[in-house]
Design a protein around this nucleic acid. Sequence first.
DNA 1: TCCCGAGTGTCACAAAAGTGTCATGGGGCG
DNA 2: CGCCCCATGACACTTTTGTGACACTCGGGA
Lengths: 229, 229
Amino acid sequence: MKPYLLVIEDEEALATLLDYNLDKEGFRVDRAGDGEEGLLKIEEETPDLVLLDWMLPKVSGVEVCRQLRARPETRRTPILMLTARGEESDKVRGLDTGADDYVVKPFAMSELTARIRALLRRTRPELVDERLEYGDIVLDRASRRVMRSGRNVHLGPTEFRLLDFLMQRPGRVFSRERLMDAVWGPNTYVELRTVDVHVGRLRKALREGGAADPIRTVRSAGYSLDHQA
Amino acid sequence: MKPYLLVIEDEEALATLLDYNLDKEGFRVDRAGDGEEGLLKIEEETPDLVLLDWMLPKVSGVEVCRQLRARPETRRTPILMLTARGEESDKVRGLDTGADDYVVKPFAMSELTARIRALLRRTRPELVDERLEYGDIVLDRASRRVMRSGRNVHLGPTEFRLLDFLMQRPGRVFSRERLMDAVWGPNTYVELRTVDVHVGRLRKALREGGAADPIRTVRSAGYSLDHQA
DNA sequence: TCCCGAGTGTCACAAAAGTGTCATGGGGCG
DNA sequence: CGCCCCATGACACTTTTGTGACACTCGGGA
């Protein structure tokens, strides 16, 4: 749901600051203290964007860049470099290292988030955009509205979050546990079958007016937003 | 189907935590309280990866490492060491004990799973990859879909797991016992012939639309996913 | 304060989908 | 030519999912 950023930065103070501010801006943030750790975390879960310090212990920023560009899963992952003033700046400016953008320390947090959003919009618009679309379904976050083929669909808050989540990765199957975590929050104690009920309600609302059911049930696995069949 | 991890750790609290979290991450986990028990369990069933505490009663972590490296079945089994801060760290860091990686306690669960996945990807990519292909058959774990020559193939949960398993080692022949273990789980009491029935159902589903039977029956031995002779 | 309506979480029961066994009939292989 | 060994349809049984009903909570308004 939230964009997932990985901050690879060895300077503890800066990392904490970034962590705090980016979290406040609505990003999910994880942190790595050096290039090696960063690469590992990336392997676990591909971030939506990487904030990368230029100078790093163990594996340098340039090297991390190179490796990310070499892997198919991360070839298109945006990389934003953090550089100190004067630090190899010519090379960085050209961005021929594979990074997509850079900021020079010290920088204003607002400038950073602006650049982050710009990069994200380019690669994964569904993460920052106010509106998600799938087939004839449109979900508008700003106005909290859902339309299907132009017709307004009324959803309760839970159904709205559920659809929002499903629309971020259409086709992918999510277990009830996963949906519970994503939609209800990770520390909620609710009957798992409650997910079924809400999926049912969402389905009913989306089918209003005779449209096809856009949710696929995968027996013994979960649900996905998907073309049937 | 699920990667099988063995946790060798004497600290009850940590072991339970690991058990719980790794299970949630989709691994099958077994636990041993000391090195001796660990070696026994490994002999019973070779794990896909071993999580090994450095300090252990009876047989130490280092010794377990050594013994695993000495046996052909486990020579290539990845070992991830768990060490307390400062504990023999130089020696561990060099990984000259035979371990493939290590984490220092206390550690974030996300870091641990990242490293586990990284190691598994290195040795057994088919265990963690999202998509398997063989000939014109594509199995996508994320969307839980199987396609043959672009046509969607509907499979029940058991047939899906069965195909998943067969696709991990195409061409190789598996006995009914082996398939039973892998697909039904090691503690299931079901008639062996049931495998035949499910193979039959899988075949039927895959032949849908006139395609050739991709499963080879090896008389008095088992089945394999294979081009027919 | 009290009432009301939208939203939620549970349950129970029905329906759908998937499973395990068995019996029967072929077929391959010595 | 016989044996095994396998393929397969039938079927009773389980498991999993869909859904309507219902009781509760929580903010507004009146």
